[in-house]
Design a protein around this nucleic acid. Structure first.
Lengths: 107, 107
DNA sequence: GCGATCCATATCCATATGGCTATGGGTTAT
DNA sequence: ATAACCCATAGCCATATGGATATGGATCGC
């Protein structure tokens, strides 16, 4: 069985792949060429990583001529936030800032 | 280079390993035997997974006679929460419930 | 003391994974 | 039309990974 959490965590576990996603989050829509220029790996590798991110729902692609524009899909992170929330009991207790959360997490 | 996010995401990417951590979060401290009984894999495999979780800081172990008790270390999830927060712009905007966050994440 | 129990480590194996190069389809430019 | 460009797919390969079994050290019960 392949759960949503599986695909999400696995997609974000690889440093190269996570870096791609982070860049799309920070800098917005980018083409494969743009991403490849700073990824440190070859273009086919970037494409393969983008496939994985897309299958996890973390990115969207938009075709425009011979360019393919990719953008981050933040809503795909919802299960991850929900999971950590469940683990830490975050939402049940409705902490409203990081300080309190960290305090609670110190045991 | 091996970052904190790497070890965290990688540790949680495996379903068996994540299940172990989830169980420790829900049910509290457990021995290796307890965990093995429901893990669906052999005892050595459970031990190996626990090593990975421990190296990621996600669990603590306590030795008591021939038993080893493991427990979840919630504070280890902090970097993960921080990361998702940065990606979604959560903390900058100080949303106070999941509804608002989800709404914002719908593009 | 001795066997049984608990757990960690060692070894092995099959598969998954992440990188590369080669290639080809589609698109733009000349 | 043809060349150049962008990107995806197809192989290929080395390594990482998750599983199993075998074993051994430490501890408890008898």
């Amino acid at each position: 069985m392949q759960t949503t959490h599986d695909t999400l965590f696995r997609a974000l576990a690889d440093p190269t792949r996570r870096a791609l996603f982070e860049r799309l989050c920070r800098d917005g829509e980018k083409t494969v060429g743009d991403l490849t220029a700073r990824a440190g790996v070859s273009q086919p590798v970037v494409s393969k990583h983008l496939v994985v991110l897309k299958q996890a729902g973390l990115v969207r692609d938009r075709h425009e001529g011979r360019h393919t524009h990719y953008s981050a899909q933040l809503r795909a992170l919802a299960p991850l936030i929900d999971w950590t929330s469940q683990m830490t009991g975050f939402w049940e207790n409705r902490f409203d800032d990081l300080e309190n959360l960290l305090k609670r997490m110190d045991q």
